[in-house]
């Protein structure tokens, strides 16, 4: 199925929740959707007969400076097509519904995005740091992150 067809199905189902899309001249065609609808959309694209996106290839956090984002790379093992969903949330209230209930693999991916970007995945069963130590302060991949002078008595800068 082409990206245009996938987009049309999404648009027909969710209407205004699908904000914008770029489907041509990009390596991975994507659609930007409303953050608070992502769980519904995820459940739909996984369950729909025509789409069957049964594989979440990657879930990444993004810092757009002023806004935070999450990008979902989806693939269908059945139909051999792929698509990308993107959401954006304000940095001061980075709440995104967790899609862990749709794709189990999102569990650790969302923990990673929470760890490094501070995205709050609501409804996640176990949202805690996965890479950094539990007592780490801040979220290092944010653009405004300042490297601390000391961590547990160890000097950090060179």
């Amino acid at each position: 199925m082409t990206a245009q067809e996938i987009h049309d199905i999404l648009k027909a189902q969710f209407g205004d929740a699908v904000l914008e899309a770029k489907l041509e001249n990009v390596p991975d065609p994507f659609a930007k959707v409303q953050a608070d609808r992502i769980l519904d959309i995820a459940a739909f694209v996984r369950g729909d007969e025509r789409l069957q996106f049964d594989y979440l290839m990657c879930l990444s956090g993004v810092d757009y400076k002023g806004k935070l984002g999450v990008t979902y790379h989806l693939y269908s093992m059945v139909h051999r097509h792929k698509f990308v969903l993107k959401v954006e949330v304000p940095t001061d209230a980075p709440n995104v519904p967790s899609v862990e209930s749709v794709w189990k693999t999102a569990d650790w991916h969302e923990r990673e995005a929470f760890d490094l970007y501070g995205l709050n995945f609501t409804g996640h069963p176990d949202l805690r740091r996965i890479l950094l130590p539990y007592d780490w302060e801040g979220h290092p991949l944010r653009k405004d992150y300042q490297t601390p002078e000391y961590y547990n008595g160890m000097k950090v800068p060179y």
Partner: peptide
């Protein structure tokens, strides 16, 4: 020895094990 390629942007890297 000294942090290697992570000497500048490695927020998570100890810049030389001789610090501990």
């Amino acid at each position: 020895n000294c942090g290697g390629p992570y000497w500048e942007h490695g927020y998570h890297v100890l810049k030389g094990v001789d610090r501990v």
